[in-house]
Amino acid sequence: MPIINVENLGKVYPVAIKSPGIKGTIRHFFHRTYRNIEAVKQVSFAIEPGEIVGFLGPNGAGKTTTLKMLTGLIHPSSGTVAVAGHRPFNRDAQFLRNITLVMGQKQQLIWDLPALDSLKINAAVYDLSDAEARQRIGELAEMLSIQDQLKQPVRKLSLGERMKAEMLAALLHRPQVLFLDEPTLGLDINAQVAVRSFLKDYNERYGATVLLTSHYMADITALCDRVLVIHQGSLIYDGLLDGLLDRFAPYREVSVEFARHQTINAATLAPYGDLQSLEGCKATFLVRTGKLTDTVSKLLNHLSVQDLTIAEPPIEDVIGKVFQTGSLK
């Protein structure tokens, strides 16, 4: 039975429209006009307990709005949402104990105090005994390698340390459903890797369900088998990450280094595929997966090849194309 079930979810925002300049300002003062923005349109999906699902989309696609509706922060305009058996916008205490939302750009820790003080508040609010709170803080701090920083004022922590401390605070009550909105935003590579491995570890250890948005594809490829792609408010893909590549990028990148004695130019290479680059005796083609074996055989038979590699196109490029075209056709 799905732990998250979303059917025909929609959200419409009224947004005030103002023309630039003094005339526009005066008109806006006396007579405000609004335009309805459909931020989320007819979105449906279901997530099973324990799944880690990536939620992808360009800026303004409706990811954060959807997450806010799933956590009960905003009311949907249409459709139904059920998370862990609750309607989120009722904000039942039991529901709130089962979920968490980590936002890369927002903090819940008290800025001028050590993170431990904020954790003390969370422990009291979530009714954890002192011993239980100590044990969980110790365990999570170890998983996040942040034991020594919890006694320093939050404002003195580096961005990566602060994000880890935020994550610790958000997970102290051991929620079963994690909504993560850009949890690695602005972090350096090492901190990103640490956060990713922590999330993987948390998911395995507690069987938690994770819905994750990120602009870093490395987060998605490291953590998620399944992705949801949203574009202009509509869900345009729900399936395996590999399936996304197969459907939207049914080609491979073939890189070839030819022997130096040959004369190689664009005309020579045109029959073998879509030439992407040619520098000296090195060339890169895009070849449709169905014709891959045939093309490579022809290349090896007709030309003198020193080296040949076949690679999947970079996931960033694929996702970028999906966002640009807004379709998977």
Partner: peptide, 12 residues
């Protein structure tokens, strides 16, 4: 600033 959001997610 939207910082009310994390507070609304706590059962208090």
């Amino acid at each position: 600033q939207g910082t009310l959001s994390p507070l609304l997610l706590q059962p208090i």
